[in-house]
Design a protein around this nucleic acid. Sequence first.
RNA 1: GCUGGCGUGGCGCAAUUGGUAGCGCACCUGUCUUGUAAACAGGCGGUUAGGGGUUCGAGUCCCCUCGCCAGCUCCA
Length: 663
Amino acid sequence: MSAPITVTVAGSERSVGEQTTAGELFEGDPSAGRVVVARVNGELRDLFHVLADGDIVEPVTIDSEEGLSVLRHSAAHVLAQAVQQVNADAKLGIGPPIRDGFYYDFDVETPFQPDDLKALEKAMQRIINEGQTFARRVVTEAEALAELAAEPYKCELVGLKGPDAGDAADGASVEVGGGELTIYDNLRRDGSRAWGDLCRGPHVPSTKMIGNAFKLTRSAAAYWRGSEKNPQLQRIYGTAWQSKEDLRAHLERLAEAERRDHRRLGAELDLFSFPDELGSGLPVFHPKGGVIKREMEDYSRRRHIEEGFEYVGTPHITKDGLFHTSGHLPYYADTMFPPMELEGAKYQLKAMNCPMHNLIYRSRGRSYRELPLRLFELGSVYRYEKSGVVHGLTRVRGLEMDDSHSYVTREQAPAEIKHLLGFVLSLLRDFGLDDFYLELSTRDDGEKKDKFIGSDEQWAEATSILEAVATESGLQLVPDPGGAAFYGPKISVQARDAIGRTWQMSTIQYDFNQPERFGLEYQAADGTRQEPVMIHSAKFGSVERFLGVLVEHYAGAFPVWLSPVQVLAVPVADEYADYLQGVLDRLKRRGVRVELDDSDDRFPKKIRNASKSKVPYVLIAGEDDRAADAVSFRFRDGSQRNGVPIEEAIAEIVAAIDAHVQV
RNA sequence: GCUGGCGUGGCGCAAUUGGUAGCGCACCUGUCUUGUAAACAGGCGGUUAGGGGUUCGAGUCCCCUCGCCAGCUCCA
């Protein structure tokens, strides 16, 4: 008879026998079947973990964020076992859980083909059905190296164990990094060992818990430990959920994202295209896309001027000396279009606007009375993005930035940054994005520190000012170490769209480097020459990218003010076309973008076309409407309002445009 | 840039083992047209991304270039 020990389970004390495992505590609970691991004294442990006197134990269920991560991590192990079952020569990389799923990296002779995934799924299902248990085993470094002699990547990880392992490679911390080295053995029902992997754990008690709510989604190459200097491994991605229904829901979300894809909608709605003749990443805007782009530009110009900015203009091309002065060229030469040699000079396409704005600042002497001096333009820049990263409108090679630079005294900087943050948030809200968080991108003090120019003191000051303003905003602030530009730290605004995806939108950067490099100065009240600080800010970021995000956010059904066509009139029969044209003429005089469907199509077909075009207001008129000096509204959801008097209809439409509302 | 998968009329797709390109929508023409997601008929349109090769014969196989997709790396 073992001496009893006392543990605290979900808040209440219990006496249990020695050698009791975490899992045994929850046996009999209604949720027992959903408990995947336990939190013991704050650490996640397997259910097979043997408890000690005084332990504080909480169940972690499969429907929690942590529970799902454990499930996905275990699914990754099953995948690896399946891969080595099929191909014994496959060497293991790492296999962590990620958002919505997991991946595992392998070094294999021939990359995985789409058909391989199906076969691997089947092999995984067999392993899952076997009901293998995950057994934890502590090993010494020497034992691990001996046992894993055939796994070179795992051996490399063994050498990295400890608190730094997490930094060594994204995801490596799930393999090692607990301070203690462990191997997880997959045991069959009869106790024999089916497979094993160096792993920190914890894991679900049985592969059965994975059930059939998993799917392998794709394969692709990935650099070992995240560095392009390392060899590429073959990565398989999968997704795993607590139930088949959740899996289905996840796949449905992916399908919804695909339906909203701006590249697809851009073609369907005739907004823009990417002619091969122009080259990769160079979009053209069709008339309808041009309307949206122009609305965005007009809005941006008007709001900037309201916020104290002055509109300027600069060329698309410059002699390369400018970018040497700014310091960009040494950093970005390989992502700028190569220079053109003319008259003994090298000309470069503009890849950023700030150096040219500095020249405007420097064009004459400046007084402290002029500061803050705020310059703004819709500047076209060209960047030679690597072929593999060009993507629709979100990553292009030619783009327009609503780029501004505020020149301020050091003392004015905090207030200016606050002003800019308020401005960008109000702008995003006007475009219907209202769920944000902020990211503070700072210098990396590690091995990449050389990339950043400026003194420690300058970085510290700039970072603390940005951080203070960001914190004051009350928005969630997420650190992004190493994400700063070479010349200074930045705040970026991340916005969540209608289906929960986040996009980096506006940025605000504090720059103490360029003023020095350009020799910018102003005369202070005491007559001395002082150096200003410049604050870079992009609201849309790239107009193209922002437009792409809006297409996806609204799934092509824009709020009225952004809709390329705001009112589409559909006569019930030809005879009412003139009547509707009269209504449209009045709307047009109020600045409304209107169209009349006077095609030869019959009425139902016109309704169908109107629906597919996602125009916010479809105005219909037949005999009833004409007799009453009215029109009928048909909305995008198919709902209808008949017999609206013309005056009222016009007032309502104009009001919806002015208010930037969705209908 | 790297790895893999792709590239057939404007769009979405089809074409046995390599056997000589077809369908729907859109477009054009004609007839039709009275209340909410497709009237009917006829027609135009492709040297299958481009180039080279293998073969009696290539959309199908091989090589190169360009472009697209997914991921990695990168993103001033």
